[in-house]
Simulated assay, not measured.
Amino acid sequence: MTTTKNKIGFQHVGSFLRPDVLKQARKDYFNNEITQQELTTIENEAIKDLVQKEAAVGLDYATDGEFRRSYWHLDFFWGLEGVDHVHYGEGYQFAHEETRDDTAILSGHVKFNPQTHPFIKDFEFLKSVTDELDIQPKQTIPAPSQLYIELVRGVNADKVKEYYPNVEDLYLDIEKAYHDAILTFYDKGARVIQLDDCSWGLFLDEKFLNTPDGKAYADSGIQDVLLNLNNKAIENLPDDLTINTHVCRGNYHSDFAFSGGYAPVADTLFAKENVDSYFLEYDSSRAGNFEPLAKVSGDKNVVLGLLTTKSGELEDRQTVIDRIKEASNYLPLDQLWLSTQCGFASTEEGNVLTEQQEWDKLKLVKSIQDEIWN
């Protein structure tokens, strides 16, 4: 069996803290104080600097840090035809904080257009930078299931009924839009694409599941809907394209949205989703134990997110190593790997730590990878 290292390599989940110059430029742009071209130039320089740092720390795959995005998920949705950017009236409610209130809502039928979706040009720029530095590009996008969850969120669902009287037609359009997007990234040189997915979080949170709404949600059959959306989107792709998923419980300004172990979704997500690897959040007791990993089917890999991005405090090396060994009781070591639990800035606000601390985290990840799997 090929070693886990050769399958996955050293890669970060995705986002990095935005440098101050970039934060200021985005504010200036939205205040009409600089042009789009001026903002793009500053973004380009920040991404070039980031990729150089990613290469220097030893990453085999580089992201653009999601530096051009406001959110890890909504910006991709807004680039699709038939999806509009509106304000919901309230944000997502995290454990201690409420987010901004942006959302995505239907304005027509969902379609991916490679000529107009900004992520394609963004990826082309990233690849032009990685080509010069002997490092591979990695593209992160929100999962198809995440788009569906956003479109049917509260009053947003009224637009779904308007444009898709038969919800099965919406499923088909989401699956095709994503399939087309993935193939376009592939044609531009992407060989690793990650589907970021918080849509499973509600199934994990016992506090929510014990409410009447939670029980109804858990019994609704929606797990199968989410699974099928994701699997249909990644059917019939080139053999040399790796599709990973990152399953998260929320990551906003160092706050979280959900708690609970993976057991309620293991029989569906771990056993049946046809990805190559799962990047899983395991940085705190909120994530439960490793027992659900026994449900991972076939030779799929699990990347243990044992180092938190929610604080700058550096984990104890031996504690991380011991937890990897504990996880290997449920999934063989050659199907395990290591990362941080999430990105450092799932939204442009970023988590509460310093840039030096984020690089220290990645250096520790690399050092433990080398010790355990070399």
Score class of each variant (00 low, 15 high):
358 E>K: 02
291 E>V: 13
327 A>P: 02
276 D>Y: 14
102 D>R: 07
340 T>Q: 04
338 L>C: 12
50 L>F: 08
160 V>F: 05
286 R>L: 09
58 G>C: 06
100 R>N: 13
168 E>Y: 09
39 L>R: 15
185 F>C: 02
289 N>V: 06
339 S>Y: 09
161 K>G: 03
82 G>N: 06
362 L>P: 00
207 K>M: 05
153 R>S: 10
250 G>D: 04
15 S>M: 08
119 F>A: 15
29 Y>Q: 07
365 V>L: 10
322 D>A: 14
62 A>R: 01
138 K>G: 03
348 E>Q: 14
308 T>D: 00
198 C>N: 12
16 F>R: 01
110 V>R: 06
140 T>I: 15
26 R>V: 10
54 E>R: 01
19 P>F: 09
294 A>R: 14
92 Y>H: 10
174 I>G: 10
374 N>M: 02
66 E>R: 10
84 D>E: 15
243 I>F: 07
178 Y>D: 03
166 N>Q: 13
82 G>K: 07
59 L>F: 12
3 T>C: 03
278 Y>D: 04
108 G>L: 10
259 S>H: 00
137 P>N: 13
265 V>R: 01
10 F>E: 02
53 K>R: 15
292 P>V: 09
104 A>E: 06
108 G>D: 13
314 L>R: 11
328 S>R: 11
242 T>I: 13
304 L>F: 05
104 A>T: 08
22 L>I: 07
16 F>Q: 04
287 A>R: 01
250 G>S: 03
298 G>E: 12
118 P>D: 12
46 A>R: 05
231 N>C: 06
160 V>I: 13
210 N>E: 15
68 R>D: 05
343 G>D: 09
153 R>Q: 14
62 A>E: 06
159 K>E: 15
133 L>V: 12
79 G>E: 11
2 T>Q: 13
14 G>Y: 05
286 R>W: 01
364 L>M: 15
370 D>F: 00
123 F>V: 14
68 R>V: 07
54 E>K: 01
349 E>F: 05
372 I>Q: 03
259 S>A: 09
222 I>P: 01
197 D>G: 08
29 Y>T: 08
204 L>Q: 11
291 E>Y: 03
333 L>C: 06
50 L>M: 11
326 E>G: 06
292 P>E: 08
113 N>P: 12
315 E>I: 05
30 F>P: 00
187 D>A: 12
146 Q>W: 05
150 E>W: 07
189 G>Q: 12
223 Q>C: 06
90 E>T: 13
288 G>S: 04
105 I>W: 02
37 Q>L: 15
121 K>D: 15
54 E>S: 06
283 D>Q: 03
297 S>K: 14
361 K>D: 04
99 T>I: 09
60 D>E: 14
228 N>C: 00
311 S>T: 15
133 L>Q: 13
373 W>I: 08
92 Y>A: 12
30 F>C: 00
91 G>R: 12
201 G>P: 07
115 Q>H: 14
332 P>H: 04
120 I>M: 12
155 V>G: 02
319 T>S: 15
161 K>Y: 12
4 T>Q: 09
164 Y>N: 14
123 F>H: 13
154 G>Y: 14
22 L>T: 08
247 V>P: 00
349 E>P: 00
3 T>Y: 02
281 E>D: 10
68 R>T: 11
151 L>D: 11
69 R>D: 04
173 D>P: 04
112 F>G: 08
138 K>H: 11
220 S>P: 02
175 E>S: 15
238 P>W: 04
81 E>N: 13
47 I>N: 04
